[in-house]
Amino acid sequence: MELCSFLTLDSFITDPLTHDFMRKALLMSSLVAAVCGFLSSYLTLKGWALMGDAVSHSVMPGVVVAYALGLPFSLGAFIFGVGSVALIGFIKQKSRVKEDTVIGLVFTGFFALGIVLVSKIKSNIDLHSILFGSPLGISLSDVKQTIFISLLVVILLSIFRKDLMLYCFDPRHAKTVGINVFFLHYLLLTCLSLAAVVGLQSVGIILVVAMLITPGATAYLLTDKFDNMTVISVLSAIISSLIGIYVSFWFDLETGGSIVLAQTFIFLFAFLFAPRYGIFKLKKLFAGYK
């Protein structure tokens, strides 16, 4: 480790930027963080954390099959992501098993299928990079794909921002005033699958769910306004990505894990010191000085 480089904050930040792979990693991870952070506010409010977990794990066999067939892996991931949700809905409707149980059994089944497929299909798929992400080894075609998908999701979420908020808040009212609830449901699921695909690259399948849950939860503790919640969620996701990548560079740590840990620390900070909803309510502490 080059500890001498730590002497100035300036070099702490600029040194990594001299490497091409670091510039790419920072850019890609920020983009992914923005997408997941945006979506995260909806998932948090809709109570879809477990659904995020399910979809992100279920894309695994899709990725493997797509690689084997030479298709873009986002396509395979997308089909299996949405497929898993449809299957969850079907089993729930046709059996007496409770929803959380169905979600748990479907996504672990899909995930296991993915792992088995990896071991059977002889290819150059690196299981480790799927599971834990490889933001430092992103190829050019991956960069293009990530940018395309991220933009698509951000545009969709921006257009239907208010409808999705209403759908999360009061779907019955949405239906009553003629808004297409079925469409919004699948729009949110589609965005979730796509976000899982891009998130997979930076933090991997296992930790991508953190990207989809933690920023929203952090923002939820910090504000009572929906728009602010989205902004805070996106910012906290981007900041933790940057922190995670720098820390992993300087201390030679696993990048995906570092990013998620940074998010977790930001959440803990909000949990303890959020002005209204934190344990130590900062507002009250400051009020003493006025």
């Binding site: 409010l45 808040f169 019955r172 939820y220 009572d224 306004k225 929906f226 602010n228 919640m229």
Partner: peptide
Amino acid sequence: PQNEGIDSQFPIS
């Protein structure tokens, strides 16, 4: 809706 039918913690004015 019934008061119980909505999420009162939803961040909305």
